[in-house]
């Protein structure tokens, strides 16, 4: 118990770091995933190809490798940003590929006839997507998107290895101070649990509210 009470501010900083990473990267992943999913079902061939390549590259690259590429690669091209921002970029882009695929599977659950009906009313592609297809697709992807964001929260631990303040990274400091490594990890695990359970709770509410309204 001493580990926690003595180092509350260290844990607190780490916890807040992870929360920040998770929130910003989630927002980026949701926005990019939404755009990429739209690309992948667009009537324009080049957009579909772009979306497919985006997903193929990001989904199939190990996240650690992606962190190296972003944190060490981008500065070489003159793009120098705080490590926190790089970490959000890496996490957000990586997760956007999974969000995109979840959304796309949701889009496929909407009967094609409804899209045809919308188009035959004279609605454009984007009107059909935003007014008819996506609102129904969202309902069937609430749970997989929640799982993806939980994975994102846990994946954010990798950022600690790149000197970003986050929860897992606190063990190094505390270990050097001679605290019990086991208890340190127990409190860290509890910290992650608070974050992931909070995400689960939010998505459970969303699913109750929107999931079955047909």
């Amino acid at each position: 118990m001493d580990v926690l009470t003595d180092n509350f501010s260290t844990f607190g900083d780490g916890f807040l770091g992870t929360v920040e990473l998770t929130v910003y990267a989630s927002l980026l992943a949701l926005a990019l995933g939404f755009v990429m999913a739209s690309f992948r079902v667009a009537p324009v061939g080049s957009l579909r190809v772009f979306g497919a390549v985006w997903v193929a590259v990001l989904r199939n690259t190990p996240l650690t490798l992606l962190f190296f590429a972003v944190l060490l690669g981008l500065p070489r091209f003159g793009l120098v940003l705080p490590f926190e921002v790089f970490a959000v970029l890496a996490l957000g882009c990586y997760t956007s590929a999974f969000i995109c695929e979840a959304l796309r599977s949701g889009i496929n659950t909407v009967p094609t006839g409804q899209g045809e009906a919308a188009r035959s009313l004279g609605m454009t592609f984007s009107q059909t997507l935003s007014g008819v297809v996506l609102p129904q697709a969202f309902r069937s992807v609430i749970s997989p998107v929640g799982s993806t964001l939980i994975a994102l929260a846990k994946n954010s631990a990798i950022a600690g290895a790149f000197s970003v303040t986050e929860l897992l990274g606190t063990y190094k400091t505390l270990n050097e101070l001679g605290y019990s490594i086991i208890w340190t990890f127990v409190w860290i695990a509890l910290g992650y649990l608070i974050i992931t359970l909070a995400i689960s709770a939010v998505f459970n509410i969303l699913e109750k509210r929107w999931g079955v309204a047909r």
Binding site: P111, G113, Q114, E116, A118, S120, G122, V132
Partner: peptide
């Protein structure tokens, strides 16, 4: 042009939501 042409389908295709 499609907005000038009404279409009714075999499977109704109403917007379920």
């Amino acid at each position: 042009l499609r907005s000038e042409v009404g279409m009714v389908f075999q499977s109704f295709n109403l917007f379920a939501h």
